[in-house]
Nucleic acid binder design. Sequence first.
RNA 1: GCCUCGGUAGCUCAGCCUGGAUAGAGCAUUAGCCUUCUAAGCUAAGGGUCGCAGGUUCAAAUCCUGUCCGGGGCGCCA
Length: 587
Amino acid sequence: MEELKDLLIKIIEDSLSRLNYIFDIEEIKANFQESDSLNFGDYSLPCFFLSKKNIKNPNEIALKLGKEIEKEIKKDKNLREKIEKIEIKNSYINFFINKKELAFNLINEIEKKKEDYGKENLGKNNKTMVEFPSPNTNKPLHLGHLRNLSIGESVSRILEFYNEKVIRANLYNDRGVHICKSMLAYQKFKDELENNSENIKNKKDKEKIKSDHFVGDLYVLFSKKAKENPELEKQAQEMLVKWEQGDKEIRELWKKLNSMAITGIKETISLFNVKHDKEYFESNIYEKGREIILEGLKNGIFKKENDNSIYIDLTNKGLGKKYLLRNDGTSIYITQDIYLSKLKFDEFKINKSIYVVGNEQEYHFKVLFSILDKLKLLKKENLYHLSYGMVNLPDGKMKSREGTVVDADDLIDETKELVKEELKKRYILDEKEIERRSLIIALSAIKYMLLKTNIKRDITFNPKESIAFEGDTGPYLLYSYARANSILKKIKKLPEFKIKDLKDEEIKLLLKINEFKKTLNESYKTLNPSLIANYAYQLSKIFNEFYHACPVINSENEDFRLHLVLAFKQILKISLYLLNIEVLEEM
RNA sequence: GCCUCGGUAGCUCAGCCUGGAUAGAGCAUUAGCCUUCUAAGCUAAGGGUCGCAGGUUCAAAUCCUGUCCGGGGCGCCA
């Protein structure tokens, strides 16, 4: 395609010369554009830029130049085959490429490469760690974590598709006052929690509360109690001190609750089809990093306050003053992060580190990366904060401590139940198959909902309007896939194909399939899965239009259309794989 | 106050980087289409000061400046 573009630009250049027009080659390149409208051709050249220099009406220029180009194209056999026609519309010269040749090449390439179609070696020298979703261990995952998981996994897959070696890492924030709150509630109000079902949010199965939900319920109960009795906050702080001193009883309780939380969290992560290669625990590293800070102090990168606390002055970078060690010598959050960032590179010999973390922490990462850079420990260009927007509720932010969160497990369960109803309405299936399909469909709905919005933007999720299954949704994509499959199931062996005249719907589908590589490349460069999500939807939409306009089986063009459907199916499958959405052969 | 992200149809969002021909989808509303490959589908209609004001340009939702509104951040919290 690129070659054709260059060829055309050359022709334009020659034609302009022959007509004695004044022009600038760079201007031609800048104005020459691709188009995705069937009416305006595949490429076009607006001629306004020639108007001033040549003191002529742009329409007139387009007309003359267009004719000259047409003559030129007719002379060249290669171009004659590739360019079907050119049209002049007002000040535009529109080029229509030969779709038959495109169709032939595209379909053959997809059938040859199959699930590897679109793969590139751009990232082959990269070993990249992607860290996500790094939860706190005092509560179960919520919808915000699911967005994080969706983005982290999808980005990992996109990187792998371009041949990067990816290490998926998760950092458990398993220590701190937040855990102590759950622990304190356990000591004081455990019985109350268990005897009063109103305190238990996950009511579906009271006998067997999921372990992380139990810890989370304790946390919510703590907050409730602490409102009435502020003394509790103080006690939680005291507990943290005891924890740090290694108090045996406290440590035992901590281990117990932590393990409950982490077990439950892992179940959810695994249900979401994500598997981590490495787990870090804050409790193991929270005291580390002090040596690095002291070293930096010696080198004059950090400064000491009168009270002995240590800080870095980043005022010249607009980041202000940031403390790194307290006056009692203890670490701060960022101190351990400096340590961990370096550890990742040392342990895994990676050369790129991606942090999938919400945009509320942008300042933190700017500071972190600046410090690592100044210390010459790591280079800024190898560190990337993949920042994404918050998931909000219609009345504002989700707050764990108040219990106003959309719980991940509950959402998956509830969505699954709705899918089951839909399935029962439509098809007769045994219970096991309903279970299997409903989970896949429910997850597709949730994942797609979370990935289709540009990652930079906040999402407003309305729990009252349950997750949709129609229109721009995950199930629509799965449905389109299953539809394509049901056509292909009808034939035993794929015939050879010839391409006759193409209908608009066939051309549109071809052109959209042809866009896949470009979209994928863009999403790799920008680490933005939403581009692929939107592409998958547009592709499916065009397929459904094709489906209605062009019968396949027993049609005159059956052979070609079968191959076209197969190509569509392949591209949609790859797209969905990159979004971590599993497909169903039958809906 | 400073930094940052956003403001496009009633609602949820594409498009903006890299300016181009009538601004696109979905939901919701209305009207159609299932003896033919899966109706979780398709077709059509209505619905727009692209926050506002300037500027650059032959051409601005897109670039620049200012401004208003909203989110987030600016802790020896994590």
